[in-house]
Design a protein around this nucleic acid. Sequence first.
DNA 1: CATAGTTGTTGCAGAGATGTCACATTTCAG
DNA 2: CTGAAATGTGACATCTCTGCAACAACTATG
Lengths: 232, 232
Amino acid sequence: MPTIALVDDDRNILTSVSIALEAEGYRIMTYTDGASALDGFKTSPPDLAILDIKMPRMDGMETLRRMRQKTDIPVIFLTSKDEEIDELFGLKMGADDFIRKPFSQRLLVERVKAVLRRVTPKDGSAPKETDAKALERGSLRMDPERHTCTWKNEPVTLTVTEFLILQALAQRPGVVKSRNALMDAAYDDQVYVDDRTIDSHIKRLRKKFKVVDNDFEMIETLYGVGYRFKEA
Amino acid sequence: MPTIALVDDDRNILTSVSIALEAEGYRIMTYTDGASALDGFKTSPPDLAILDIKMPRMDGMETLRRMRQKTDIPVIFLTSKDEEIDELFGLKMGADDFIRKPFSQRLLVERVKAVLRRVTPKDGSAPKETDAKALERGSLRMDPERHTCTWKNEPVTLTVTEFLILQALAQRPGVVKSRNALMDAAYDDQVYVDDRTIDSHIKRLRKKFKVVDNDFEMIETLYGVGYRFKEA
DNA sequence: CATAGTTGTTGCAGAGATGTCACATTTCAG
DNA sequence: CTGAAATGTGACATCTCTGCAACAACTATG
C-alpha cells in the first residue's frame, strides 16, 4: 500500500486526516513542519505528500520547491479560501492538486486516490523512469518536449544520447546510477554497448557544461559504482 | 454524430452542459477527473474534449499534456476569469479554444461546433491533427479555413501537405516534432511514408519562405529528434 | 486527354553523432 | 608504497542523419 506523508502544523488536521487515510489502508507519516518533512523524505520517501500551504518556518511552497530539486513525488496542497493566488504559483512548481479548507474526509480520500491513480499506471507496465516532464534541479533545467537544456539560464546543446543520460542522472540527484542503468536509460532494450561508452558521454557532457560554467562539477564519479548528479 | 468528452469535477456543470450538447445531437461522455478521462479515452476516444482547467487545477493542464503525447483530439478549456495566465500556458500545451466561466449554453455549443467543423473534414474521413483555428505566431499567420499563409504580411503559397506540416510545427513553437508526429499531422492514420519525405517538404517550406524573406530561419532541425518551429 | 501542379521516393554528399581504442591519470586495497 | 583496476581523455573510424536535387508517379482541372 502506498505511503502518504502529511505535513501540517495543525495537529487536529494531522490526526483527523491520518485516521481517514489509514482507514483506506494507506501508510501515513506525519510531520509538523516542512523542514522535518524534507528530512524524513530523505530516508523514507512517501508515494504522495500532502502539504499545508501555510505553515510556520517553512511554508508549503518552499517545501515543494525543495522537494522538486530532488524528486517528483506528487504533492497535494491544502489551501485556504483566500490563497487562490498561491495556486497559480503552486501549479508552476509542480503541485498535483489543491484542496480548499475546509474539506470533507471523503473529498480528500477521493483526491488522493485520483492523484495516485494518475501517477501509478495500474497495468503492469514498467513505470517509466524517463517522463516527458520538464525537469528543474537547482540551476539545471531540462525540457524533453523542447529538447532544451540550460545551466544557470545558459543554453547547453545536447545530443539525444547525452540528453537521455543527463536526464536519468538529474532525475534523482544524489542517487548513483550504474553504467548499466544509464545504458538502459539511453538505449532501447537489447542494445548493448561497451561500458566505456558511457564514460565518453559523461566526458562530453562535462565538457559542454564547462563551456558555460567553468566550475561545473555536478556530475560525480563513484569509483567502481557509477555516476551521480550532485545533490543540491 | 461526434462524441464529446466532458471532464469537470463540478457535477452541476457536467449535467447542464451535457443537456445542452445532447440537445444538439452529440454523444456525451462525462468524467469527474483527468485520470479517469484519460483512461476512458484509451478505449473510446472522443472527437472533442472539454476540460475544466482547474478541476483540481493541475488536472486540466496535466490531462492535456498527457493527451498530447498520444493523440491530437481537440480540446476546449473551461477557465475562470482570473486564469488568463493559464491560457497562455494552455496554448503552449496545444489547447484549441478557451471558454471563460461563466458562459452561456449557446456560446458553448457554438464553440464546440466551430472546433468540430474545422477539425472534421465534411466527408467522413478520419479527423486529422491540426486544429483548424487561425494561427498567429510572431510574423507567421495561417488561416486553415482560407488556406492562406503569410510571413511578415507577405503571402506564401503552400500546398496542402506543406500547410499541414507547417501548421503542426507552428502550433506549438519551441516543441520538437518527430518525423512521425509530423506524418500523423499531415496524413490519415495508417498511411506511412518514408521519413525522407518529411525532409523534402521541410526543404520546400524553407525554400518558399526564403523567397519572401531571405533570412527566414524559423524551422529548426534537431539532429536525431525532429523539427521545431522557433520559439518567439 | 492534356497539362500544370503536387507529391513520394531515391541516391548521394556533407555534417554530425557515436562507439571504441590507446594512453594518461586516478583510485583503492593491501 | 605499489600494483591492479577503474576512470579521464583525445583521436579516429564508422555510422547515422539531413539537405538537396532529380525524377517519376499521381492529381486535379479544364
